[in-house]
Structure formats: C-alpha cells, structure tokens
C-alpha cells in the first residue's frame, strides 16, 4: 500500500480472490476503499468496457466491409466451410436419415422453378453423364435406369426457407447407377445441371453415394410433374431441398468444386445435414 495515498482495504484488492474478507449478509465479499481508489478503479473498468465496446463495434464494421465471396462477406464463407469441414472430418456422410411409413407421406409444394420453367417433350429428354476427363460416359433417357433396384421411401425434405415435408420418392440409388456405369471413385464432386443450364448444383461424392440419395421418377406414387422435375430428378434427405435438382440434363464427375446456383447467391455450398 502506498502511504501517500492510503487505501483502506481489508484484503488484497484483486478481482480474482479477496482472501480473508468478510462477506455481506448476502454472502458476497465486502471491500472498503478510499474514494480515490474507488474512482480510479471505476474509471479503469469504464474505460476497459468502452474499449471493448469500440473493439466489438469496429470488428462488426470490418466484417461488414470484407470483400464478398459468393455474395456474403468472405469471413462468413469461411464459417460455412468450417461447418462443412466438421461433417467431413468428424461426421459420417453415409449415415441414414429417419424414414417414415409410406402412408405418412405428405404433399410437397413446388417451390423453385429455376431450370423447369418451360415445358419440355419428356420423350425427347436425354441426360448426359460426363467423366473426369470431360468425355461422355453415356447419354440416354430413362432406359439408363433399367434393371436397377427400385427404392420407394418416405423421408423428410427440408427447405432452406424453413418448411419441411415428407414426400414419398420412388427411384433408384445414385450409387447403383454409377456402379453399373463403372465409374471409378476417383472424383471428389458431382456437378449437375438442368438441360437449359439455368439451374446447377454441386455435391460432394459421399452424399451422392449415400444409400438414400436417389434418382427419382415418381413422387407420392405418381410420375413427377414437370414442375417437380420430370422426367428425372435428384432427391436426397441429407441436404437442403435446393440441392435436389429437378430435371437433370447433365451429370459430371469432377475434382474441382462445382459451381452451385444458390451458393453463388450467398447460401452455403455444402447445405448438408
């Protein structure tokens, strides 16, 4: 204690422990200080708080002013990538989502029209499958699915906007489809596009090969309507609905992260659950 500026504490005046101090009737320690000491400490706390608030506000402004990456500040894009890395490293993308009884199926609304706005001639529709080297593996219509084991299940379909539904999807596993084509698992991503190229998604290999990721022809027992993606769409319960592309025109295997319609507009690229 400084003699020229005496303080009258009854114990060491640290915030981290005041040994031997008495307590108030409510159980909290009591400290007696000189008014000068009290003023100094109050001012120090206030200035620390002010500096903290200024730092917080400054940080917020810096964040808002960061260069954009896919329509959001790059720091937030790194946040999305951190979340994506979590499931890649500690998660298991072959895990299955809950399924429901067929009679629990519900209607599902048409929410996105990108890539399916115009009616097409379903009989003339063809899908291209392109390998890592950029060469076509195959091109064809629904006959490409012939002989593959049919899957008929009800899963939760969750929209990025917040609603969810339990549609019944009927189709074949994407994993079975690529296995029969003999595609080696030396690709990281799958890129898909609608025939007009208006809508496009990028997917990680693990989710595409998940047993619940289907190439779908029927919704709730009926053939897909055009607005629901006829004649062939993707449906996976492991990502937000925006990833379940309708009316597939192109499937391309790649090692470069494919562009993604909604990721370019500020949404998560992964969108995984």
């Amino acid at each position: 204690m400084n003699e020229s500026n005496p303080t009258h504490e009854t114990g060491p005046a640290t915030d981290d422990g005041v040994d031997g101090l008495p307590t108030s009737h409510l159980g909290d320690p009591v400290v007696v200080r000189s008014a000068a000491e009290h003023r100094t400490r109050s001012r120090r706390s206030f200035l620390t708080g002010l500096a903290g608030a200024a730092a917080g506000f400054g940080g917020w402004r810096v964040l808002q002013g960061r260069p954009e990456d896919g329509n959001i500040p790059d720091v937030l894009r790194r946040g999305y990538e951190f979340n994506e890395g979590l499931w890649t490293r500690i998660g298991d993308r072959s895990k299955l989502a809950p399924t429901f009884a067929l009679d629990e199926a519900t209607d599902i609304r048409v929410n996105g029209r990108h890539g399916v706005r115009d009616e097409i001639d379903l009989d003339a529709w063809q899908m291209r499958v392109v390998g890592l080297d950029g060469a076509a593996i195959t091109t064809g219509g629904l006959e490409l699915l012939d002989g593959l084991e049919p899957v008929d299940h009800v899963v939760e379909h969750k929209c990025i906007e917040g609603w969810s539904a339990k549609p019944r999807w009927t189709g074949v596993r994407f994993a079975d489809f690529v296995q029969r084509l003999g595609v080696a698992e030396d690709y990281e991503y799958v890129a898909m596009e609608t025939p007009d190229g208006d809508y496009y998604v990028g997917m990680d290999r693990e989710t595409m090969l998940n047993a619940q990721t289907l190439l779908v022809t029927h919704l709730n027992g009926e053939p897909l309507t055009q607005l629901h993606g006829a004649p062939l769409r993707l449906a996976t319960p492991h990502k937000y609905g925006v990833k379940s592309i309708k009316r597939i025109g192109l499937i391309r295997f790649t090692n470069d992260r494919p562009r993604d319609f909604w990721a370019e507009r500020g949404y998560t690229w992964d969108a995984g659950f």
Binding site: V31, A35, E37
Partner: peptide, 13 residues
C-alpha cells in the same frame, strides 16, 4: 486513518 467521507464500502458482486 480514515475520514468517513473518504470511505467507500463495496460489495463484490
């Protein structure tokens, strides 16, 4: 050692 007007009693909360 302590004039009453120079004393501040505080409860650490």
């Amino acid at each position: 050692a302590r004039p009453p007007d120079d004393e501040v009693v505080l409860v650490r909360k």
